[in-house]
Design a protein around this nucleic acid. Structure first.
Length: 493
DNA sequence: TCTGGGGTCCTAGGACCC
DNA sequence: TCTGGGGTCCTAGGACCC
């Protein structure tokens, strides 16, 4: 509160000025952006509470792969009450049950049964319902920002520079900030963020934490800094100072491996990263190292942009460790069918088909094959996937996956552009095995069988397909046409 | 410590082309 | 042909995120 020193808001903001333009102090004369990161608090658990008020205040654990009464699966989300018992996201359900028994197993009259006060409610994931709640949240966000990037079902960035500013409120006597974080003076941005946060709670019925900062990276860290129900404001000029004391792992992009590698170099905090020699870190970590230094210094010029179309679709599932070839083939066939179905629902073609085989303890193997041209051909997905699997025919696996990538949304067939409501849905189920679906599309035109041939021998079809530059460097060359194709479930856009 | 499913991006080596 | 350089595409794996 004291010492209106260099930190905090740009001095001009404190004079109650209405000029839209506290700048970064960086030389640039564009006004500092106002970026919000909205992060829903234990979203799945909050959704469950929304429809089951009896769960409020209770430890709630939402498990994926979990069936009521079972001990399989892992924790997708734990409410904060459950976290107090050591139940974290990704904890195996069996372990979670050790720390926090099921309420159903409690019995006050049985000395051997758990104390009801030390039990929790376990529920399976109900994605469809969470998506419907997320829709309500999104409606608020869309209303509050011109530029919105939905990161996942429970997280989004908003650029609200055009809706608010870093100017202080309070006229000659600026009000002090009511938010957590380094802000000393209350700003318009803080008020706007609070407004967004309250609207989410009011209109969607679930709590959110919000971070406000001049860039995405800082906003992300800020939203995380005071969870749950947090509002953290980091004004321009205060970013590096805000980050400095945090452990490196608090930076977006620093996981366990990088954290360890940094620690070996005596780098423990974001401040240490900011002070590090960028070239030295680049040598150790590649471009990521350089980027990390910039982020830790509060520099991040990335624009908030809407998320583009997906780059791959995949499906995987764990299974009890097995070497049984038939079992593996059945699993892969089922996964392949599912991936192909989803691709068709979204109206996209794919040119690469791959599998993943995880061997115990945790040996991840991937294999992939690219086709001469993009296709929509469920039977080909199965065929290629099974062929790739054959390399692992004798190996024990604990998880299998199928993926399609090199997606192409531009060739959208009118019949399927409507997404899941299109022809895609029911028409493939009873198709006789072995017959090419009538709806099978392939940019190859001609007969689909050629593609199959190609799969079996490393054949020659490739040449005709060298369609010239595919312009690798995939970075979003902007959205391609047929945005409708993505109007599918499970996605924020 | 041995947990699940859906993704993204990056890197490195090899094949191939000019 | 074995010596140079530049570029793209493909595959496999790694790290990370939610």
């Amino acid at each position: 509160m004291e010492g209106a020193d260099s930190r905090g808001v740009d001095p001009r903001a404190t004079d109650g000025g209405t000029l839209p333009g506290a700048d970064e102090g960086d030389g640039a004369d564009e006004p500092a952006r106002v970026v919000l990161h909205v992060d829903m608090d234990c979203f799945y658990a909050s959704c469950e509470r929304l429809r089951r008020p009896d769960l409020r205040g209770e430890p709630v654990v939402v498990g994926m792969g979990y069936e009521p009464g079972e001990t399989i699966g892992a924790v997708a989300t734990a409410s904060y009450e459950a976290r107090a018992f050591g139940v974290e996201s990704a904890t195996p359900i069996s372990e979670a049950l050790d720390r926090l028994p099921r309420r159903a197993d409690a019995d006050p009259d049985d000395p051997d049964a758990p104390d009801p006060d030390e039990t929790g409610r376990y529920l399976p994931v109900d994605m469809a319902f969470y998506e419907s709640v997320a829709e309500d949240v999104k409606a608020v966000l869309r209303d509050c920002a011109d530029v919105l990037r939905e990161v996942s079902v429970d997280e989004a960035y908003l650029d609200v520079t055009d809706r608010t500013a870093w100017d202080a409120v309070g006229g000659d006597d600026p009000a002090s900030s009511a938010a957590a974080g380094p802000a000393e003076v209350r700003t318009l941005a803080e008020g706007y963020a609070r407004h967004v946060k309250e609207r989410i709670e009011r209109e969607a019925g679930v709590p959110a934490s919000v971070g406000v900062a001049p860039n995405m990276s800082a906003a992300k860290v800020a939203s995380d800094a005071d969870k749950p129900d947090g509002l953290v404001v980091v004004p321009p000029g205060a970013v590096a100072e805000f980050l400095a004391p945090l452990p490196t792992a608090a930076l977006h992009g620093v996981g366990p491996v990088t954290e360890r590698a940094l620690a070996e170099r005596g780098i423990e905090t974001a401040g240490d990263v900011a002070a590090a020699d960028a070239d030295a870190l680049a040598e150790a970590f590649g471009d990521r190292g350089r980027e990390l230094v910039r982020r830790a210094r509060g520099e991040d010029e990335r624009e908030v942009t809407p998320r583009g179309l997906p780059k791959s679709l995949s499906r995987e599932s764990s299974l009890p460790r097995t070497s049984d070839e038939e079992r593996k083939r059945e699993t892969v066939a089922a996964l392949a069918a599912d991936v192909a179905r989803r691709a068709r629902e979204r109206g996209c073609l794919y040119r690469t088909i791959g599998i993943k085989a995880v061997e115990p303890p945790f040996d991840v193997n991937t294999r992939a094959r690219s086709l001469p041209g993009p296709v929509d051909d469920p039977e080909l997905v199965e065929e290629v996937a099974l062929e790739l699997l054959s390399e692992f025919a004798d190996d024990a696996v604990r998880k299998l996956g199928v993926r399609v990538s090199n997606l192409d949304f531009s060739e959208g067939d009118q019949a399927t552009l409507g997404g899941f409501e299109g022809a895609a849905r029911g028409d493939e189920e009873d198709r006789p095995a072995g017959s090419r679906p009538a709806g099978s599309r392939s940019a190859a035109g001609r007969d689909g069988s050629k593609l199959t041939d190609w799969v079996d021998e490393e054949s020659t079809a490739g040449e005709e397909w060298d369609g010239g530059d595919r312009g690798n460097g995939g970075d979003d060359a902007g959205p391609r046409r047929s945005e409708e194709g993505q109007a599918s479930l499970g996605d924020w856009e």
